Amino acid sequence: MKIALIVGIDYYQNVSGLHGCVNDAYSVESMLKRNDGGSINFKTKLVTSSGPTDQVNKRELKDLINVLFSQKAEVALFYFAGHGYIEANGGYLVASDATHGDDGVSLNEILAMANRSPATNKIIILDSCHSGIAGTSMENADISHLSDGMTILTASTAEQYASEENGSGIFTTLMVDALSGSAANLVGQVTPGSIYAHIDQSLGDWDKQRPVFKTNVKNFVSLREVTPPIILEDLRSIVEYFPVAGHEFQLDPTFEAELKGRDEGMPEPIEANTLIFKRLQKFNRLNLLEPVNAPHMWSAAMESKSCRLTALGEHYRRLVEKELI
């Protein structure tokens, strides 16, 4: 069972309101609720505040977080979009009824709940200002206290603000893009690590906010499954053509189905070989394979040269060899 508490707060009684947090919460829930193709993914609870009639107060927010991390789930995920606050004693998530920034739910308390959780994987995702302080020891800023299975992903460092753009948080926009498939691996899995990598690469070095990623896990869990860019049967066939590391697969003109560009006396295409070549070309397009001493795969075949796996291709070859795919 995978469960997620998703909170977005735009309305605040005593501090300035926000504009994109509720939209962000709906977008995140839409992505997490179902995998690509419609299968059930997370069981979600969505809580939002857009006006005085639907406030999310401190007591309610704290209770909801406590219930989430009390469940014995495969994954317990908490997402928050709203105001964040930092002071000498730590950081806070600000609820609708807060009179001051430190009148919110303490990030130290949230981390304590998550660290005690019976859930196998605990994931905290925060799109709020100063959220990078989450998990940091107050005694030593270089130390994080994360129990086994804990992952924290935040929109900014402890010193930075989290920005909104076009009615949505910049961080969450990139996260939703990652969940939609931009950060998927070749078997269609989107993990917290791949989400962070996607966001980190999308924000330039001069951006005023940088994401923070902290984790203590033995294996990354998939947060969403999307349609893989290659049929798994095709991917598993990689060991047929490259049985050992460093192997080169020899090509010749019989692998190329195109008749144009052939010199006189060249052998005709062989159907079985052209089918193999189509698969090898898929590997090439996914950066799993490269021609040797040729500008592209067509030239490698027509000039009877070979192809070999890239570093990424060798990685997937090993996974297939170990029956991990």
Rank of each mutant, 00 (worst) to 15 (best):
N219H: 13
G261Q: 01
A183L: 04
S117C: 14
R210Y: 04
I124Y: 04
R236A: 10
Y316C: 07
R262H: 02
N284F: 10
F220M: 02
L223Y: 01
L232H: 03
T173G: 07
A294Q: 07
R318Y: 05
G169Y: 02
S144Q: 12
S202P: 11
N293F: 11
P291F: 05
Q55F: 09
G82Q: 10
V239E: 05
A311W: 06
T157S: 15
S70C: 08
I325L: 15
S96Y: 12
G101P: 02
I124L: 13
I231H: 11
N216Y: 12
A300I: 06
L235P: 02
K43Q: 08
E323I: 04
H100D: 01
F249A: 06
A184C: 08
Q209W: 01
K208E: 12
S168F: 01
S30M: 09
D205I: 14
L107I: 05
V226F: 05
D205Y: 14
A155Y: 00
L32P: 00
N35P: 00
V187G: 01
V239N: 13
V226L: 05
G167R: 14
D263S: 04
G82K: 05
S144G: 06
L319S: 05
L32F: 10
D127W: 03
S168R: 14
V187A: 01
K62I: 01
A76L: 07
D207I: 11
